[in-house]
């Protein structure tokens, strides 16, 4: 696991950035792919390697960065929700209600959807914790961060290898 220490560092950074609203809006969809790219760069610098990065390595570094980002992002989000008893579900619930009301769907579906989210909202307001919310955050983070981490790793390796090629030439 020592091999992936750079992924741990950039994954941690990405996990933090993902939950800070202002920073999140600034870097948008680039956070995780850039974290993967920087983990490859950090690893190159740490190992003083001048060799090309294999796609397999790039993929592994990307996936590890995504996994660390998902893990830290989830822990921070759940912890902050637990402490503050407030999160985006609470903040956007009135908007969600308005949105659901405007959809051309049957009243039964609308009621069911709103009931589910009302329950989650009440649990968070009362205990600062909701099993459904925690589960959805964890699954979301694991899937999305891992995929985007892998993409960032694969593209990042091409960029780094291209730079190495230019230096050699």
């Amino acid at each position: 696991m020592k091999k992936y220490i750079s992924s741990l560092v950039t994954g941690f950074g990405a996990g933090v950035l993902q939950i800070v609203p202002f920073l999140r809006s600034f870097s948008c969809c680039m956070i995780i792919p850039l974290a993967s790219f920087f983990s490859l760069l950090l690893n190159q610098m740490a190992t003083k390697s001048r060799e090309k990065i294999s796609s397999k390595n790039a993929l592994l570094f990307g996936v590890m960065t995504g996994l660390y980002a998902a893990l830290f992002g989830t822990i921070f989000e759940i912890f902050i929700t637990f402490i503050t008893k407030h999160n985006d579900i609470i903040a956007t619930f009135p908007e969600l209600q308005r949105m659901v009301e405007n959809f051309p769907v049957s009243p039964e579906i609308k009621t069911e959807v709103l009931n589910i989210f009302q329950n989650v909202r009440n649990e968070i307001l009362t205990y600062g914790f909701s099993v459904l919310y925690t589960f959805s955050v964890l699954i979301n983070n694991l899937i999305v961060d891992t995929i985007f981490g892998a993409i960032g790793g694969l593209i990042g390796a091409q960029v780094i290898n291209n730079r190495l090629n230019n230096r050699i030439n």
Partner: peptide, 28 residues
């Protein structure tokens, strides 16, 4: 959101999907 009018059950997935896409977009 556009597909909800064709399958209203997608409304259950919408908040979950919003959360998924929020990981890679600020959604202002």
């Amino acid at each position: 959101e556009w597909f909800i009018k064709y399958d209203e059950h997608l409304l259950f997935a919408l908040p979950f999907l919003k959360k998924s896409y929020s990981l890679v977009c600020h959604q202002q």
